[in-house]
Simulated scan of single mutants.
Amino acid sequence: MDNRRSFLQKSLSYAAACVGVILSAPVKALTAADRAYLNSPYGYCDAKKVAYVWGRTVGEAKAVIGNKVLSNLQHLIDQDIQSTRGQVSCTYQETELSYRDAEKLGRYWGRPTHEAKQKATIMVSDMGTKRFRVVMAGALGRR
């Protein structure tokens, strides 16, 4: 019993120390490029595809996208995204679609929700988040 209590106390102390370190870590201020990416129609899957093209991390690719948005060069982002067709796969979570979106798509396509999630994931992986949102806006109830 004492060993378990000692282990538990040490574990709790360690967890508290970790939380303290995390909470005291400096928060990076958003740059103009960060804000441009966040306010753009591009999503995580798009950043993953741009990262592949540029040989960068996804975080760096978000900045690339943001800078191109600020420079009104979205056509270059779209070209990068399309150039990765069949080379970069995204997960359903990376599509940034909700379960409710999958339900709507399932009704639109006449498929069960789990099949709609699979189909949407394949489509976003092929065409990117921005283009998928445009193509499926009616089905998702977003105009």
Rank of each mutant, 00 (worst) to 15 (best):
S6E: 12
F7N: 12
L8M: 07
Q9K: 14
Q9T: 10
K10R: 09
K10Q: 07
K10W: 00
K10T: 03
S11K: 14
S11L: 10
S13T: 11
Y14S: 09
A15L: 08
A16E: 13
A16N: 15
C18H: 10
V19S: 10
G20N: 10
G20K: 06
G20I: 05
V21C: 06
V21N: 11
L23D: 06
L23S: 06
S24C: 06
P26R: 10
P26F: 09
P26T: 06
V27F: 11
K28I: 14
K28P: 12
K28R: 15
A29T: 11
A29E: 14
A29Q: 10
T31P: 14
T31V: 11
T31R: 11
A32K: 13
A36H: 00
L38T: 09
N39G: 14
S40P: 03
S40L: 06
P41A: 14
P41L: 11
P41V: 12
G43W: 00
D46M: 02
A47P: 02
K48W: 05
K49R: 14
A51R: 02
V53Q: 02
V53C: 07
W54Y: 15
W54G: 04
R56V: 06
R56S: 09
T57Q: 01
V58Y: 09
V58R: 15
E60N: 07
E60K: 14
A61D: 04
A61T: 06
A61P: 03
K62R: 15
K62I: 07
K62T: 09
K62A: 09
A63D: 08
A63K: 12
V64D: 03
I65V: 13
G66A: 03
G66D: 02
N67M: 13
N67K: 15
N67T: 07
K68C: 06
K68Y: 07
K68H: 09
L70C: 03
N72I: 07
N72R: 14
N72C: 10
N72P: 05
N72W: 08
L73T: 12
L73Y: 11
Q74N: 13
H75C: 10
H75K: 15
L76V: 07
L76D: 10
Q79I: 12
Q79A: 15
Q79H: 08
D80R: 01
Q82N: 12
Q82C: 11
Q82A: 14
T84R: 04
T84M: 03
T84N: 05
R85Y: 05
R85G: 08
G86K: 06
G86Y: 00
G86A: 02
Q87D: 06
Q87N: 14
Q87W: 04
V88D: 01
S89I: 04
C90H: 00
C90K: 00
T91V: 03
Y92S: 04
E94N: 02
E94S: 01
E94M: 04
T95R: 06
T95Y: 06
S98L: 08
S98T: 15
Y99D: 13
R100D: 12
R100I: 04
A102C: 08
A102D: 00
E103S: 05
E103P: 01
K104L: 03
K104R: 14
K104E: 00
L105W: 04
R107N: 11
R111P: 08
